[in-house]
């Protein structure tokens, strides 16, 4: 039972973590990013579409389409994130509104396209791209360790990918010139500009990165909890990721903690219901747990939050 709590908790938390990392990049550069929800959905859509096409072409015997689908998802998310870039940076729109707009467009666009593509290519009327659930591995040796070994049992390949990306993300953020420029833009874009940094460009790259990372997160969910792409992917997990990064104070490691908390809240709930033999309708109550935990945590912790100083500020060059 403990094993499945850890296994399911991680499988839920890590995709959220990678979305939150994307969010941290965007918000640390000064751009409020509520668009994560739409970005992950759009990414999952492109990835799932690629997967469906590739499996049709290459058959089911190979793992290649699986990995390609992640690349395609990331590319899709990055391209789609340009909508947020254009609205926020080019058209100086309110970033909160822009984020919501991007999400609504993603929902409408992907539902429409899924139906359309299904009809055009497969001649079916369906609003889903059916995927298979991802394969899972036991990490040799490590998974044998009692108790914590569960963290290495039945691991999705993407979980490992996410951990690697997280390390790289930390390095980029805190050790490279780009990371330094990015954090500077979020604190004082005027100062960054005066130092010769192209604020718009830094922010654009940050949003696009966040698009790619969110998309990978969305693709993970498509492979794990739903085993398909359908409009049901818009479960608000992107918003949960935002709550996680707020709770994690815009730093990568504490944000991981927040994601794990949400993940375990959920998996514990499911286990409890399963073990007590309650009817499956109770699962709907369990599904509220991550959201409830988020709210409670925000109540206790958001007072001493320190958001990036220039977060959400529309940057005008000439403004003095």
């Amino acid at each position: 039972m403990i094993d499945s709590i850890i296994i399911d908790g991680l499988a839920f938390a890590l995709p959220m973590f990678i979305m939150a990392i994307g969010g941290i990049f965007s918000e640390k550069s000064g751009i409020t990013n509520l668009a994560i929800e739409g970005l992950q959905g759009f990414g999952a859509f492109t990835g799932a579409f690629a997967m469906v096409i590739l499996t049709n072409a290459m058959g089911t015997g190979t793992q290649v389409p699986y990995y390609i689908s992640f690349l395609v998802a990331a590319a899709g998310g990055m391209i789609y994130s340009m909508v947020h870039v254009i609205l926020c940076i080019r058209f100086k729109a309110n970033q909160v509104i822009s984020g919501v707009v991007v999400n609504i467009l993603a929902m409408a666009l992907t539902s429409f396209l899924t139906r359309r593509l299904n009809l055009m290519i497969f001649g079916e009327t369906s609003n889903k791209f059916i995927l298979e659930t991802s394969v899972r591995y036991d990490v040799p040796v490590l998974s044998e360790i009692p108790f914590i070994g569960a963290a290495f049992k039945r691991v999705y390949p993407f979980e490992i990918l996410i951990v690697i990306i997280a390390v790289i993300a930390w390095y980029v953020m805190y050790r490279t010139p780009y990371g330094m420029h990015l954090r500077a833009c979020g604190d004082n874009p005027h100062a960054a500009d005066a130092a010769g940094i192209d604020v718009g460009r830094v922010q654009m790259i940050a949003i696009v990165l966040s698009g790619g990372l969110s998309a990978i997160g969305g693709m993970c969910y498509a492979y794990s909890i739903s085993a398909n792409f359908s409009p049901d992917i818009y479960l608000g997990l992107g918003y949960l990721a935002i709550a996680a990064l707020i709770f994690g104070n815009w730093s990568i490691l504490p944000t991981l903690g927040a994601c794990l908390l949400f993940g375990f809240a959920r998996s514990i709930g499911h286990e409890v219901i399963k073990n007590l033999g309650m009817p499956s309708t109770y699962n709907d109550l369990v599904r509220t747990l991550p959201y409830v935990v988020t709210l409670l945590l925000l109540i206790f912790f958001s007072k001493n939050n320190r958001a990036p100083r220039a977060l959400g500020e529309v940057y005008f060059r000439g403004k003095r």
Binding site: P177, H181, R183, N188, A191
Partner: peptide, 28 residues
């Protein structure tokens, strides 16, 4: 035009940071 949560050095070098390569290939 200063970044309030950066050190003096970080503020001064911002925009023209001297770089080095970790293990000879990872820039920092």
């Amino acid at each position: 035009r200063l970044i309030s949560n950066y050190t003096v050095t970080e503020n001064i070098i911002l925009g023209s940071e001297p770089q080095n390569k970790l293990f000879g290939f990872i820039p920092h």
